[in-house]
């Protein structure tokens, strides 16, 4: 299955890049991410509870970032197992400046789905994948917003930006 598209994040490219490389931001943005930990080889291990409507499945995913060219592009490789099947994907993410305050993230990749989802879900797979990707970018945009434009703190004792 081919997956491609783009998403505009209202933040400068440097900020977007930093946040894409930030495991904490990723963990907060990945739909249904219940845990994410670094592996010794630099990849990440994540527990994801992914769902569309009543369909929900838990996946153990290994996420790897390959050939990063800061702040322009990197390849991402995801290997997920669980819920009666597997999802393996690899794709290229490219960051383009769209003026000084916006960044266009373009992604293009290929995913291989196996198991029950592959055998019964072809009708909805593409749309469901797009929905999950869009959920990620929406959540990610929020995270980036919080970093780039921290809301003014109402309580001077609580810092307004993440630690």
């Amino acid at each position: 299955m081919k997956l491609d598209g783009s998403y505009t994040i209202p933040a400068p490219r440097e900020v977007v890049w930093q946040q894409l490389m930030n495991p904490e931001t990723l963990a907060k943005s990945l739909p249904g991410c219940e845990r994410m930990q670094p592996n010794p080889d630099g990849s990440y291990q994540a527990e994801l509870k992914v769902g569309i409507g009543a369909v929900k499945g838990s996946y153990q995913a290994r996420i790897e970032i390959l050939n990063p060219v800061s702040p322009e592009r990197y390849r991402m490789k995801v290997e997920g197992k669980g819920a009666g099947g597997f999802v393996n994907g690899e794709g290229l993410l490219t960051l383009t400046e769209n003026g000084s305050a916006q960044t266009l993230i373009t992604y293009s990749g290929e995913a291989q789905v196996g198991g029950v989802v592959a055998s019964v879900g072809q009708r909805l797979l593409q749309a469901a994948a797009r929905q999950i990707v869009s959920q990620f970018f929406q959540a990610f945009a929020k995270q980036v917003q919080a970093v780039a434009f921290p809301p003014p703190s109402t309580d001077p004792l609580i810092p307004s930006s993440p630690r």
């Binding site: 291989q112 789905v113 196996g114 029950v116 592959a118 055998s119 019964v120 072809q122 009708r123």
Partner: peptide, 14 residues
């Protein structure tokens, strides 16, 4: 079967 050998007409919905 898709190019990876997954049977993608695996139910009577397809």
């Amino acid at each position: 079967y898709d190019e990876n050998g997954q049977l993608i007409t695996g139910s009577l919905m397809d």
